[in-house]
Nucleic acid binder design. Structure first.
Lengths: 223, 223
DNA sequence: CAAATACTCAAGGAACTACTTGAACAGTCG
DNA sequence: CGACTGTTCAAGTAGTTCCTTGAGTATTTG
């Protein structure tokens, strides 16, 4: 069976990459970075940790090559090294959802009851977008919308939705989307819209999955 | 940003699954189980660990739902819960190979110099198999061949190849394959064949990848 | 050049992880 | 039923990981 020591070392190498993702805070970082690049303070804020600790976790991710940095003035921006990392993250989520029994409870505790939220798949939305019989709302923060969004989507961050309701046409279905299947922003948006009597649906996945599926996207051009 | 505690718990849940893979010995277990089910003693032997320790690692994998068991007589057989787990493992390997700098050295130390081994991709092999101008050798142990192999492949475990050389036709290219991209059995087979003057190539991936790509497979029917 | 900003590094303690040894627990087969 | 086999559990030790605090290092701006 070949060289035991070298084989163990090689598999320890694969395990290093798994270890990089084997921490809830680092998982959150990957999830946020799948939306686009961020600097350390933003990331620390996003995961609710100190800047020092976030920096430490980012370093861990960088050591295994999952994230890369770019300096701009006094800030350092982190991003996922490639789409493959986002795919790996997505595969991990899927396996967890499918096979890890306790995940259901954890997801329910964070997401609340989704049974009454109507969902729409990527394929269905792509079709209806082409047909033009639907309004799509990107309810993520505007910076994420600017970095890339579903072609034709309108930016209304979820915390501004109540105020912007009047701008949303009444006579057509509304689809809200956000960061991904475990993001609550679109859920909140859909619940609000339905309370106000609109017919609203949630896109099952988020923007990163849409983009990876090669469906049409747009981005704000730097001026 | 919703409920911090619940969000952290959810992402800790995803991290649990990554943790299950975040150990070299467990990674080896997953790699072996991707070939088919095994009982504990075989697995312990395969990863060069005590039965007790292997059992412990298998339990860890079972807790996150990555593996499942089945009893047959006095033995307990473990297998991957689904193809998704194999896909996740494959995605992890790919990311490690693409982004984790140190992996190259580790792989080189275990696999040796592959630069002089000619390779063939799944697609190319599928085409040549259809055309019938190639002999395919499955050089894994016979039990793995029996559990499933590339349609039309012949079983010659690598340690029996030297003795069985005469049975391999001289006038046609030979393709050897084994467990996957980080398995040395096909490498050894190809090197041996070339030393004996045959034109031999290595299939880039192994059997699990072939099967997941929906390419034609066969298996020994239980009698 | 000095001050300010953004980030990283180092030390330290609490909590977890890996592996070993030896005992306990099923099921199965005579 | 009772011995046997294959597997799991428990205890113990050495080593690793996580997060905090506070100091240190780049880079930009005044």
């Amino acid at each position: 069976m070949g060289d035991r020591v070298a084989k163990d070392a090689l598999f320890d190498g694969f395990a290093e990459v798994a270890k990089a993702m084997a921490n809830g805070r680092r998982a959150e970082l990957i999830d946020v970075l799948a939306q686009g690049e961020r600097h350390v303070e933003e990331l620390a804020d996003e995961i609710g940790q100190s800047v020092a600790n976030s920096s430490f976790h980012l370093r861990t991710l960088a050591t295994t090559g999952l994230v890369t940095t770019r300096r701009e003035g006094t800030r350092i921006y982190y991003r996922l090294t490639s789409d493959r990392v986002a795919e790996l993250w997505s595969a991990l989520r899927d396996v967890a959802a499918a096979h890890y029994a306790e995940l259901d409870d954890l997801a329910a505790a964070y997401l609340g009851d989704r049974s009454r939220l109507e969902e729409i798949t990527q394929a269905q939305l792509a079709e209806r977008l082409a047909a033009g019989d639907v309004i799509v709302l990107d309810v993520r923060p505007t910076a994420e919308y600017a970095a890339g969004h579903i072609a034709g989507a309108h930016s209304i961050p979820v915390d501004q939705l109540a105020a912007a309701l009047k701008a949303v046409p009444r006579d057509v279905d509304v689809v809200a989307y956000c960061r991904g299947p475990y993001c609550v922003m679109a859920d909140d948006a859909v619940r609000l819209l339905r309370r106000r009597g609109r017919r609203a649906l949630r896109l099952t996945d988020g923007f990163p999955e849409w983009q990876r599926a090669q469906l049409p996207v747009e981005m704000e051009v730097a001026s």
